[in-house]
């Protein structure tokens, strides 16, 4: 008899609970035993009834474990877990856990920020409804970088990737802009760095370098048929006069083709901003908490670039990128 078999028998002999009356808590001892057999390590395992537990509290988990579990879950599920109970909500939104999740700041948002999220998601949702193939996600808010920004940024990008990957069956590429964030910082933001490799059918590109910069992007209306797409660029493209900026409204549904050199060429371009994104630099009228203007107001925006203008209200969509690059 092998020593391993001896070990098994010793344990079995020591068992005070007959097999058939073992608690249902450990309801698959056969599986475990089979696993042990498969490994050549036959060890019978049993559970004393006094140790049985019918409920498990999240408090039983150390924070590092909890965070590791959360990191396997997309942001939608993470947030759903907060609705399980007040206790779960408290733990999941504790500053340290949020920080570890890379989403600190998120749950300290005020009403405006809440609105901003919904706004953002609505755009993402719409973007996901179209037959989006390639997506450029621009930089987000500038304020408070990087102290409060990068997790926030990463959170949004990460959640956006989640949502889009789920909802957009044709999506092949997500390009994340480095923006104002130091790449090293972003790379160390786990949720985002993980997302870069998680999607098996979606390539999530790196930050800040876009080979298609030099291309004029053609937006095909049949692709962007639900409207609300913005293709924009960074400052240098603006300077190069290679702007491809359009927020397509339902009024544009009849159009089939856009090639936009200058934002002003879109006579009916409409845009809206959340006030705190551009803060006091936006001089146009405020309606229902949003700025609204047509392109004639662009010249009132001072040094604001289009990127800054649309940065948060939109994801930037290069829907026809494959045709252009």
């Amino acid at each position: 008899m092998s020593s391993r078999r001896k070990l098994s028998e010793d344990i079995h002999d020591d068992c005070t609970v007959p097999k058939k009356s073992r608690p249902s808590l450990e309801n698959t001892p056969e599986d475990l035993e089979a696993a042990g057999n498969a490994a050549g390590e036959l060890v019978d395992v049993h559970v004393a009834p006094k140790c049985s537990r019918t409920t498990v509290s999240i408090h039983d988990l150390h924070e590092n474990i909890l965070v590791e579990i959360l990191q396997h879950l997309d942001i939608v599920k993470q947030l759903a877990l907060q609705r399980v109970s007040s206790q779960w909500n408290t733990i999941l939104t504790s500053p340290s856990v949020l920080r570890a999740r890379g989403v600190d700041q998120v749950f300290y948002m005020n009403h405006d920020l809440t609105t901003r999220y919904i706004e953002f998601d609505s755009l993402v949702d719409r973007a996901a409804c179209i037959e989006l193939v390639h997506l450029f996600l621009g930089r987000q808010i500038r304020s408070n970088w990087p102290e409060h920004g990068y997790h926030y940024h990463a959170f949004l990008l990460s959640s956006t990737c989640d949502l889009l990957a789920k909802k957009s069956p044709r999506l092949k590429t997500i390009v994340l802009s480095q923006g104002y964030i130091d790449k090293a910082v972003l790379d160390h933001c786990l949720p985002l760095s993980v997302k870069r490799v998680l999607f098996d059918r979606v390539t999530v590109c790196g930050f800040g370098t876009f080979p298609f910069y030099k291309h004029n992007i053609t937006i095909k209306r049949d692709v962007l048929r639900t409207g609300n797409a913005i293709a924009d660029t960074e400052d240098r493209m603006w300077q190069l006069g290679a702007i491809h900026c359009a927020q397509l409204t339902p009024d544009d549904l009849e159009a089939t083709f856009f090639r936009i050199r200058k934002a002003k060429e879109l006579g009916k371009l409409k845009y809206e901003l959340l006030t705190d994104i551009v803060e006091s630099r936006q001089p146009t009228a405020l309606k229902d908490g949003r700025w609204s203007a047509d392109t004639s107001d662009l010249n009132k925006l001072g040094n604001l670039t289009l990127m800054e203008l649309f940065t948060f209200t939109s994801c930037t969509i290069y829907s026809a990128m494959s045709d252009s690059v």
Binding site: V76, Y117, I118, T249
Partner: peptide, 13 residues
């Protein structure tokens, strides 16, 4: 904002 069916905003978006 991240639920499967997020609240819809106005169309002028």
């Amino acid at each position: 904002w991240c639920e499967d069916e997020p609240p819809r905003q106005g169309s002028n978006h």
